[in-house]
């Protein structure tokens, strides 16, 4: 019960600060919007091929923009050494981690709600299987948040953390991108001899395994 209260307190604190400063959502949304625009110029020479590129662009946008959000989310904790204030308090590290993951999920989810419709619009992708598409985005984002939060918390004080974070997280997140692109392609009606079901189960499995692994590791890594 107490841990739940602490989790809520950390999450609410992040939301309060964000509501006041908007220094996560604005950069994230702007960055993702620009990405989509640049991708449009880069790939739309042949509109007939838009459907081939579209699913990939959806996931590159999710991955890149969420990285921007992660860097911002922990910049806030770095100022005045605040992350240490949390970790030196009587709070299980898991509660801090969970609050950060959920916070990042909320911000990324908002960004996706703004940007992904644009991708679908610019690249003229008709989503025929809406539930599969939404499930893939939701499950994929959870995976990105779990792995990203673990390492951005750990790298908060490292030199070159902006470079290290993608270097460390992207290889681990490759399965999420592969599965996400597959389901998205299927959802926009790509002629593939596959079903989205197994890929969605795969994403759910990834989230579950890494949910447990990152939660356990965070505690260990912080207290090492």
């Amino acid at each position: 019960m107490r841990t739940l209260g602490q989790f809520v307190a950390v999450l609410r604190k992040d939301l309060t600060i964000e509501f006041r400063s908007r220094d996560i959502l604005y950069p994230m949304a702007l960055f993702s919007f620009l990405l989509v625009v640049v991708f449009s110029f880069a790939f739309l020479s042949d509109p007939a091929k838009a459907r081939d590129y579209g699913p990939g662009i959806v996931w590159v946008t999710v991955l890149f923009s969420s990285t921007v959000g992660l860097n911002r989310l922990f910049d806030r904790e770095r100022e005045n050494g605040c992350l240490w204030a949390l970790l030196l308090g009587p709070v299980p590290a898991g509660a801090v981690f969970a609050a950060k993951v959920v916070g990042h999920l909320l911000f990324t989810g908002l960004m996706e709600a703004l940007t992904l419709p644009l991708v679908l619009l610019f690249f003229d992708l008709p989503v025929v299987d809406v539930p599969a598409f939404l499930a893939a985005v939701a499950l994929g984002t959870v995976g990105v948040s779990l792995v990203g939060t673990l390492f951005s918390a750990m790298l908060m004080n490292a030199r070159m953390k902006e470079v290290l974070l993608p270097l460390v997280t992207y290889p681990v997140l490759v399965p999420v991108v592969i599965a996400g692109v597959k389901v998205t392609a299927l959802a926009v009606g790509a002629p593939l001899a596959e079903e989205p079901g197994p890929w969605l189960r795969f994403l759910a499995g990834f989230d579950m395994v890494f949910g447990v692994v990152t939660l356990l590791l965070f505690e260990r890594m912080v207290r090492t």
Binding site: L150, L155, N157, A158, L164, V172, V213
Partner: peptide, 25 residues
């Protein structure tokens, strides 16, 4: 780059551990 002190080593160890299930996926 994450420092060769205990913290840096801990982070690198964390990545090595995450790498195991990651490789499976």
């Amino acid at each position: 780059f994450a420092g060769s002190d205990r913290f840096g080593r801990g982070v690198a160890s964390g990545l090595a551990v995450v790498g195991l299930p990651a490789l499976y996926f």
